[in-house]
Design a binder for these strands. Structure first.
Lengths: 154, 154
DNA sequence: TATTGTTATACTCTATAACTATA
DNA sequence: TATAGTTATAGAGTATAACAATA
């Protein structure tokens, strides 16, 4: 057993999973999403459907390709999401004059209302879950997370 | 259109997805995991298999039920993980004298070496990915994430 | 040729329920 | 009856590849 092996053992002592940002990020994200599901309920929108609805409300007439790019998923994966939102009558696929390949996504009044209602639930859920973080700490955390997101590969 | 609707619109203006901690947490986590997979390579351990190996190295003779509880997943989901680690000869399932229901997980020398090597890759990946966060900022982030994890429901 | 939406398909991660062998 | 490990199965969520319609 040479110095190399000893160094390895030392590394094991002083640094493990709990010191990795990625590990803590994932566990924290899972914790928040569990709480999210409890907050929006059994029949509530899933996180990914909510984000799709949010972007449709924010950018009416967005196309599915644009939406997929913003969400960071493939076009193919978005079909089921838009199907669900259309089945709930929260948006409709509308033809675009001038390019018959494209379907514009247009939120309905019910869609906007559902978005506002769900967002209110989610804000309440975050207020409760993060109650022992001060406003300064929340702002700090948000800023750090955005900087990490900005370093995303590809 | 009464005051209620106007308030909703105002809320929409000042607060959207980008202000939610949960949304940023998930996107940041996805970004880090993408980078993680690039760092460990095609044949490298996945994050969940690495965490199982890490806990086996840290707590030799741990049982699968204990490991599942620590990882926050069901016993059933752990079987494939332990199968993979055993197939790689990184650990073995060993009978426990006194209770023939239990299988203790014992890391092999190759398992400890693989854990050290992978952890070194992961630390390099985090050092690169988080290079524009100062040491203070990283410590701060870790602390905030741990406090969020501590609030996990159930 | 390239792009949009779509289908088919598969893989990862996770959960629930039921089985077996023990205790 | 309760527990440990296991199997079978299903459901999200995602990705790749291919296709038809259109540009």
């Amino acid at each position: 057993m040479g110095k190399r092996a000893l160094d390895d053992d030392f590394d094991l002592e002083v640094s493990d999973l709990e010191d990795l940002i990625g590990y803590n990020l994932k566990r924290a994200s899972i914790a928040v999403q569990k709480h999210f599901r409890l907050a929006v309920g059994q029949d509530g929108l899933s996180a990914r459907v909510l984000t799709a609805l949010a972007l449709t409300v924010k950018f009416p007439n967005i196309t599915q390709s644009e939406l997929a790019r913003m969400l960071g998923i493939e076009r193919s994966g978005l079909v089921a999401v838009v199907d669900e939102l259309e089945a709930r009558a929260y948006l409709r696929r509308a033809p675009v004059p001038g390019d018959r390949r494209v379907q514009a996504l247009i939120p309905t009044e019910a869609g906007r209302a559902a978005y506002c209602a769900t967002l209110r639930l989610v804000r309440a859920h975050e207020a409760e879950l993060f109650q022992d973080l001060s406003p300064d700490e929340r702002r700090l955390l948000l800023g750090l997370l955005k900087r990490i997101r900005a370093a995303e590969p590809k």
